[in-house]
Design a protein around this nucleic acid. Structure first.
Length: 790
DNA sequence: CTAGGGTTAG
């Protein structure tokens, strides 16, 4: 039977009308759209443009962009409504590139204000404020008149990037002039612009003035003003505003307050807000729960978090944001299995879920698992990359970190300050000074040099590259500082033998009223230890519990023991170990053992080594320290015994290697390394240097040779081939006169090399910085910053 | 066909 085209058209038109009515009920409208679409295909008639447009809209709003596009492409000459629909569909799905292409394929003569509005909104929603503003300017230039929608949209974009009061005033004036100034939606957006102006939060007054002058405030007016206060940390003003609000509007305001408190780390206050909500009879909603979970996660309140978890599960009104926050709650509280289980069970995993899992593995040091997850992720965003870059750097994978950073740029991600800080941390790991400097220059150029995370990374990078002055310089020019910045500077000074200054900076920090955290104390203790400030260090250690309520951890005790041993106070060190509030850890014994090594305290050293053999028999460092101690006193049978023990237990000594950076290229050398193309010249040069140094009194110290080799001459040969010596000779040959030589070594340097470097710095009149596994050595004119023991 | 606020991952 032949269908009656008129009848079919009539039915389709009816569907189209229904579609409009049913739009909010997504499922229903999508079903209707499919039916209409099916009829069109089955009966092959040409529907009216407005039916097709409506179909496209429904498909877009049901996230069926491919169907929408298919229909759109079938239209021979899509009208401006079809195009606008397609543009806003793509915008809403986040595909700004496709939206843009449809928009730009439309001739200007065919565009109208609505289409511009859709595109501007798209930019704003995709966090691209600049493009929103540019398009706004362009449309005016092309003669289109902005309307209320335009202003609301472009102001939303402006709010993302505004950093200067002039911009706020300019746009405000333009809106007023066009008559949109007192439209509620436009005013709401203006409130948001004023309160998000980066350079002056004082504009909150202007925001408040706009707010006060809104003739008909709606719920959004109140909550936007509230957000303005909260995002600027003005919680008291926020509370005051809350008082004046209608009861039925308070939910969103409470949610804003709670998330604001959590963002500032004020979780107690956040939870207090939740209590107030509950007591005034306002029901928490799906927006509240994730913030509450985050509060628990940052505060480490696992029990409370679990209770909220159970409570929300019973209520069944949660969104997937909730699951994502749970993943982070559990891993932050150290419950990796639970976190993983929640992730696996999630019905809908999105990018945030993957990033939560990734960051869980990264921040808990499970870098291997993190790498697997990262590989498995199909979709990644800038945050995924940032998490991974920082994670790699923080776990010592500097090269991989840098590789990922350049990969990120290749794939078109514009690195933000946090990504830069990951790259800079990678440079810190590698000691890649030139590379790090280049990043610093780029930061300045882009204007990220005021960033806290980048600044903190720079301090550490310069310190780890041995350039304390620059670390100090970065710190002193940073516009704002946090405890990480202070810790980084104190560490930088301490590492390089400026113990007294490190302590001064710590005192300065205290005077400024900044509370030290456990890392600060750890850093200060290290500085005291390196500078031999025993009494001071002791005083700081005691202040931890009594003044700052920070119970000292094993790491703090280890520093204390190190401090005592280095000044030869072994009895004190022993009594500290005896009175520990926990069972001594490997860290503690290691501190004792290396302290004993410095002073040749054999009896105590053997005890410490025995404990370490029991706790971490696979750790090569213990064997090396002990056999070095025996070698120093010529007890070669004992040396052999330790070496045999090591062999029997299958413990492999990590291969020593040193490296030097030259114009971003890194040259690496192993012990006895002859693989470098210029090895012959380097060895020759090394021999010449040796001769000259001996004339000045350098005597090779053969006690550092591990084997009991028969002839002393042979032993000296072995000493001269330690990797740091090869690296420094290479550096002296290649680097321009007068430049500081920076050498890096993966293990600790030996006493002979230390001595060698001292003499060398005098012979060649160059500053040499040697960074080994534990510490830095600055050699200048025969002296070393860390004194003449190593 | 187009607008303005509150939720998760560093």
């Amino acid at each position: 039977m032949q269908p009656n085209p008129d009848l079919v058209r009539a039915i389709a038109n009816r569907y189209a009308a229904n579609l409009r009515l049913c739009l909010p009920l997504r499922r229903t409208s999508l079903q209707l759209a499919r039916a209409v679409h099916g009829n069109i295909i089955t009966f092959g008639f040409q529907p009216h443009a407005h039916i097709l447009n409506r179909l496209i809209d429904v498909y877009c709003k049901s996230s069926e962009l491919d169907y929408a596009r298919q229909l759109f492409d079938e239209i021979s000459e899509p009208d401006k409504i079809a195009r606008t629909t397609m543009v806003s569909g793509y915008c809403a799905s986040g595909d700004i590139a496709l939206a843009r292409s449809v928009f730009e394929e439309t001739p200007v003569s065919m565009r109208d204000t609505v289409m511009y509005n859709a595109m501007i909104t798209g930019f704003s929603h995709n966090n691209d404020g600049y493009s929103a503003i540019n398009l706004f300017c362009k449309m005016k230039h092309e003669g289109f008149k902005p309307d209320n929608f335009t202003y609301a949209s472009v102001l939303a974009g402006l709010a993302l990037v505004v950093d200067d009061e002039k911009q706020c005033v300019q746009f405000h004036a333009a809106a007023l002039k066009s008559g949109a100034g007192y439209i509620t939606s436009v005013s709401n957006a203006l409130v948001s612009v004023y309160s998000r102006c980066a350079s002056s939060p004082s504009l909150l007054h202007s925001a408040r003035k706009v707010f006060d002058e809104i003739p008909e405030k709606d719920e959004r007016s109140w909550t936007t003003m509230m957000t303005g206060y909260v995002k600027n940390g003005c919680f008291d003003l926020g509370k005051e505003l809350l008082e004046g609000m209608d009861e039925n509007m308070k939910l969103v305001a409470y949610n804003a307050m709670i998330s604001g408190y959590v963002n500032c780390g004020l979780y107690q206050e956040a939870l207090e807000m939740v209590r107030r909500m509950v007591s005034s009879g306002i029901e928490l909603d799906e927006f509240t729960y994730p913030s509450v979970i985050r509060a628990c996660a940052t505060a480490g309140l696992l029990q409370l978090g679990k209770q909220v978890h159970a409570y929300v599960l019973r209520r069944e009104d949660f969104s997937f944001h909730f699951d994502n926050s749970l993943v982070s709650l559990y891993y932050k509280c150290g419950k990796f299995d639970e976190a993983r289980a929640i992730f696996e069970k999630m019905p809908a995993k999105d990018l945030v879920s993957w990033n939560a899992l990734l960051s869980g593995y990264v921040s808990s040091g499970h870098i291997g698992e993190a790498k697997l997850i990262f590989k498995e992720m199909k979709e990644k965003n800038i945050l995924s990359l940032m998490i991974m870059i920082s994670g790699l750097a923080e776990n010592g994978f500097g090269e991989e970190g840098l590789k990922l950073f350049s990969c990120m740029k290749r794939e078109g991600f514009e690195p933000c300050d946090y990504a830069f800080s990951g790259a800079i941390k990678s440079c810190a790991v590698l000691g890649a000074y030139c590379n790090g400097q280049q990043f610093h220059a780029q930061l300045v150029k882009i204007g990220f040099d005021s960033s806290l995370s980048a600044g903190n990374a720079l301090i550490t990078m310069y310190a780890k590259c041995g350039v304390v002055e620059e670390a100090r310089q970065v710190f002193r020019t940073m516009p704002c500082l946090d405890s990480v910045s202070w810790n980084a500077l104190i560490a930088a000074l301490g590492q390089h033998g400026h113990g007294v200054e490190a302590v001064d900076v710590y005192e300065e920090m205290l005077k400024k009223g900044i509370r030290p955290d456990r890392i600060t104390l750890l850093t200060v203790l290290t500085a005291c230890s390196h500078a031999g400030l025993v009494d001071q260090g002791r005083k700081y250690f005691d202040s931890m519990e009594t003044v700052y309520c920070i119970p000292p951890g094993a790491d703090h005790y280890a520093r204390l023991i190190d401090l005592l041993c280095r000044s030869g106070k072994f009895t004190d060190a022993e009594s500290v170990i005896e009175s520990l509030p926990f069972k001594p850890t490997a860290e503690i014994w290691e501190a004792l053992l290396s302290g004993c090594r410095v002073h040749g305290n054999m009896d105590l050293g053997i005890i410490a080594a025995d404990k370490l053999f029991g706790l971490i028999p696979e750790h090569d460092g213990t064997y090396m320290l002990l056999s070095n101690m025996y070698a120093a006193t010529g007890q070669w049978e004992e040396v052999a015994r330790v070496r045999k023990l090591m062999r029997d237990r299958g413990v492999k000594k990590e291969v020593a290697c040193s490296w030097i950076e030259m114009e971003t290229q890194v040259h690496t050398f192993l012990v006895d390394d002859t693989s470098h193309p210029e090895a012959d010249a380097v060895y020759k040069y090394l021999q010449d240097l040796g001769k000259e140094m001996r004339r000045l009194g350098y005597v090779p110290d053969t006690s550092f040779v591990l084997h009991d080799v028969e002839s002393d001459g042979h032993k000296e040969d072995m000493l001269t081939t330690h990797s740091e010596k090869i690296a420094v000779a290479f550096g002296l040959m290649k680097l321009p006169p007068g430049t500081t030589i920076r050498i890096f070594k993966n293990l600790r340097t030996c006493g002979d090399c230390h001595n060698f470097f001292r003499f060398l710095s005098r012979v060649v009149q160059r500053d040499i910085i040697l960074r080994d596994r534990k510490r830095f050595h600055h050699f200048r004119n025969g002296e070393c910053s860390c004194g003449n023991f190593w």
